[in-house]
């Protein structure tokens, strides 16, 4: 079902697809280095820089024995000469088996998938979608909790603009999740996502600070509250220290609880948390490589065994 199909949005996959990818990612983790991509070329087209995501994809391809072509910012491509996205994609799709694309314009990945001769993986299109991040989040959750069902997930920070929390909410809503949203008023979870949960009969609770909900959590998903999201800088000053996770806040939390963060982190998780067993964000980044290997293998129809 996934084979030869582009992955543009988390909505392109259903629950079965998620689980198939996660199972394959487990196999990739067990055997991260192989040669099954020998002779395959992946183009990583990064119209805006995202070092972390690009390196994760390139690491995934390299460890499977594939080759990489591409560019890491639009300045070094023919885009600066005024070439349209359509022409770039149509040309590059002649040179490769798969395109991995990052672009600041929302919807660009869907459009690219429609003009491309090869499948396209969306590595982020503006504030819209970043589906491989969501799948690696799911992988990290299942790996640490041994299940995806009936978990309590606390999402913290910028829930209005954060695409990672929106996509994760959509994906986790398939697994009877209970959600807690912790954010300033300015950055609350948009109504359409809350309505989505209501339609499914799932429970969610909104909070302005952590209060005493941390002990309930199986997963705490942290995101960065950015200054530029506030129209009044005073509003930012008021809340900037409210959405910070510190080591002493973890004392009453469940033993299985894990802290996730899509990274990069700035100050929303203090460094003293890093040494805590419940800090999982760096391993989460490693899981990204296995998950991306699984996605690439599924789309190219490569058998990991």
């Amino acid at each position: 079902m996934i084979r030869n199909k582009s992955l543009v949005s988390i909505n392109d996959y259903n629950k079965e697809d998620y689980l198939a990818i996660l199972d394959l990612a487990e196999q990739c983790e067990a055997r991260p280095v192989s040669n099954i991509m020998q002779g395959k070329v992946v183009a990583t087209l990064f119209f805006e820089p995202s070092t972390r995501t690009r390196l994760s994809f390139e690491s995934a391809v390299n460890r499977l024995g594939g080759r990489i072509i591409g560019f890491s910012e639009a300045g070094t491509s023919s885009v600066t000469k005024g070439e349209s996205l359509k022409d770039t994609i149509k040309t590059v799709s002649n040179y490769c088996d798969l395109i991995v694309m990052r672009h600041p314009i929302e919807g660009s990945a869907r459009y690219a998938s429609e003009v491309s001769g090869v499948p396209v993986i969306n590595a982020g299109d503006g504030a819209n979608q970043h589906p491989t991040q969501t799948l690696l989040d799911l992988y990290s959750i299942r790996k640490t909790q041994k299940t995806l069902d009936n978990l309590v997930v606390i999402m913290v920070g910028d829930l209005k603009y954060g695409r990672t929390v929106h996509s994760l909410l959509q994906a986790m809503s398939e697994f009877n999740t209970t959600f807690h949203f912790v954010s300033p008023d300015e950055l609350k979870m948009p109504g359409e996502y809350k309505m989505h949960l209501e339609n499914l009969g799932l429970k969610y609770y909104e909070h302005k600070d952590f209060t005493n909900i941390l002990p309930e959590a199986d997963i705490v998903y942290m995101t960065r509250v950015q200054k530029e999201r506030f129209s009044d800088p005073m509003d930012y000053e008021k809340v900037k220290n409210v959405y910070v996770l510190r080591s002493n806040m973890l004392e009453q939390t469940k033993p299985n609880m894990k802290i996730l963060h899509p990274l990069p982190r700035v100050n929303e998780i203090t460094e003293d948390v890093d040494d805590n067993m419940k800090a999982y964000y760096f391993t989460q980044a490693l899981n990204g490589v296995f998950t991306r290997q699984a996605i690439i293998c599924s789309i190219l129809g490569l058998d990991q065994k």
Binding site: I105, G107, S108, A127
Partner: peptide
């Protein structure tokens, strides 16, 4: 920021 407002789509 949609592609349809930025490109001839």
């Amino acid at each position: 920021k949609c592609i349809t407002n930025n490109d001839s789509v």
